[in-house]
Design a protein around this nucleic acid. Structure first.
Lengths: 140, 140
DNA sequence: TTTGCGAATGATAATCGTTCTCATTTGCGA
DNA sequence: TCGCAAATGAGAACGATTATCATTCGCAAA
């Protein structure tokens, strides 16, 4: 569990809004959340935090490495707790189920492809769109 | 070269704005263009097309399969002619320069990662965000 | 070829997610 | 406890995109 000291460790003052956002992500009430999601959940909990602050805190947490930001198709960002392991996503086109995966070979080839072309990788995103085989999936 | 009949073939009336947008993409004056890019280039050519129409036409062309839409970081959509061949993209975060690449090893590993998890790949997108080394790039 | 109508267009208002501004409040070290 | 820089919240501003609506156009039937 994160404590105020964790914020200090990443160079951020321990403030009420920051602690509330962090504990929301740790509560497991949502793994992938947009700024709007976070804002509404905090309001619903009776926690009075401004929307602008939510945006600021999410960005700070991303820069501090506490959260990872994903760029949705359509333009809005979603965040998830950074649990240290980079991973990509497979999204089921039928039921929206998201599965995370990591493939070292893919990571290595990406690095190679970029450097061969004179690029210095800053970030990357890989989304595989597929049909899953979940029992609950409507395509079954 | 596309002709009015091509628009008919995909179920779209042949209109002046549509022909202008299509020929701009075919002119090679820009491979990856945002709606704003298209709008400005048409105005610069003396072609009087409304911005709203540019957005509509780009979306229609995407649905018709004439163009492919990419959602790059930074929140704006970029379009390119659909030439039938899959490829991934490296995007420079500084100057927006886009380079295309294809890596068979990455493709193969994606296929493997998905099938191992019981998914049937339908589509996928890989974007690498980086700093490029172009002379013209502002980060130099 | 002219005509008529539904589709397409363009100007502009509206929307959405996000960032900025700025007056007020807060965390925290002295 | 005090003081001040940093953080906050309300709302304005912003950039990309979509919706609205009166006008114009493409095209097929007469």
């Amino acid at each position: 569990m994160h404590q105020p000291e964790h914020l200090k460790n990443v160079g951020l003052k321990s403030t009420v809004p920051r602690l509330k956002v962090l504990s929301l992500f740790e509560s497991g009430r949502g793994r992938h959340m947009s700024a709007e999601d976070v804002y509404k959940l905090l309001l619903a909990s009776g926690d009075d935090v401004g929307l602008a602050t939510v945006y600021r805190v999410l960005t700070q947490f991303e820069q501090a490495g506490l959260l990872v930001r994903h760029y949705f198709e359509g333009g809005k960002s979603v965040f998830e707790l950074n649990q240290g392991t980079h991973h990509d996503h497979i999204v089921c086109l039928q039921c929206g189920h998201v599965e995370e995966f990591y493939d070292a070979a893919i990571e290595a080839h990406q690095e190679k492809a970029a450097s061969e072309r004179g690029f210095q990788i800053r970030d990357h995103s890989l989304y595989i769109y597929a049909d899953c085989t979940k029992e609950s999936c409507p395509n079954k």
